[in-house]
Amino acid sequence: MNHKGSGGTGRETGGHGTESAESVLDELYSTPPGDFVPRREERAAAARTAGRKEDARRIHAARRPTLAAWAANLLARSRPEEARRFQELGQSLREAHRTLDAAELRELSAQRRRVVSALTQQAAQLAGEAGHRLSQSAQREVESTLRAVLADARAADEWAAGRLAASLAPPSEFPPDTAPFAAAPRGPAPRPKPARRTAGTGDELAERRRRRQEELARAEEQAERAARRLRDGRAKRSAADASLRRADEERERARAAVNTAEEQLRTAHADLDRAERQHRAAEERVHRAGEEVTGAEREARTASRRVDRLNSRAR
């Protein structure tokens, strides 16, 4: 199956008008539901402008996904390896439903619930990281889709395509995850009774069971790793949130200090302007006083010389 990342579009070269309908649909179903319709209309219009009427019709006919369906698409596209293992688990479970006894079915059911729960948490985390929190109701819809993927091959193919518009529901004949499997009916069974099995058939069934158990063990280990990543991611996000709050507080303190310093600077500039004006006024007074002294000195010298001349005449 061909999975793409949550942000990938698989575009061809050129502008929007040169993209294939398949790449555009991949992009649309990776788009959050709130942006789906305007982006769909933009891409359909680009295809029509490029003369690709059939592509435009297909793009325009794309249904807007529910939030839960979008999250399930995001999970399939962002976790391709886990999605592949999950599909393999579904194949094993469908075979187990046809062949295993009640005790083994109950064991597989418990493992299945753990895997579905872990993947649902992953879908919720991916949606949250993309800015869309999944409600409990939406998470239950994601769980329903994942149970359908395990129970029905066609549902598995739809999910693998990453273009779900609505959540899927498992078929009624497949045992639910919310209760243990019922005991096998006592009437005629579709498989041969153990007493009638040949040695080769028994060995073949044992080998199939062994392979299924190994696949389930790998899937369960994958689910545990996913749960650990989810816990680690939440812890990192909590630490990052705390760091952001501290940074916000420090920024506010720094901003307040800057505001105070700017106010002090404005006051200092005003004081400086006032002092400079006073200095210029004082210099002007000194200059005028100097001129007055110079004039008085001249008058004094003139008066002194006149007194000297008068004294000389009187003698």
Rank of each mutant, 00 (worst) to 15 (best):
S117N: 14
E141M: 07
T178V: 01
S144E: 12
Q121K: 15
E173K: 07
F174E: 11
L119C: 11
E141A: 13
L168K: 05
S167Q: 09
G128E: 08
S167P: 13
A123P: 07
R147M: 09
L146T: 01
A153F: 04
A166D: 13
P170V: 02
A130C: 09
L105M: 15
A155D: 06
W159I: 02
E158L: 15
Q136K: 11
V149K: 03
R140F: 03
E173M: 12
A156N: 03
R114Y: 12
Q139P: 08
A102C: 06
Q121L: 15
S117G: 14
R140G: 13
A151Y: 00
T178Q: 06
F174G: 07
R113N: 08
R112A: 08
V149T: 12
E129V: 00
A166Y: 08
S117L: 04
Q125A: 15
D157K: 15
E158F: 09
A103D: 13
S172Q: 10
R106Y: 11
A127E: 10
E104L: 15
A155E: 07
A138Y: 07
R106M: 03
V116P: 01
P171F: 03
L105I: 07
S109Q: 15
E158S: 11
E143F: 03
A161C: 04
P176L: 00
R154V: 10
H132S: 11
A118W: 02
R133M: 14
A156G: 05
S109L: 12
R114E: 06
P175W: 01
Q139Y: 06
A103W: 13
P175M: 06
R112I: 01
A169Y: 04
Q136V: 15
G128H: 10
T145P: 05
P171D: 04
V142E: 00
Q139A: 10
L105W: 03
E104R: 14
R163K: 11
A123R: 02
A138P: 06
S137D: 15
L108M: 13
L108P: 00
L126E: 14
A102N: 02
P170C: 00
A103V: 14
G162R: 13
A130R: 09
E173C: 07
V116C: 02
A151T: 02
A124R: 08
A166W: 08
L146D: 04
R114C: 03
Q111M: 10
L146G: 01
R163F: 04
A124Q: 05
A118V: 09
L108N: 09
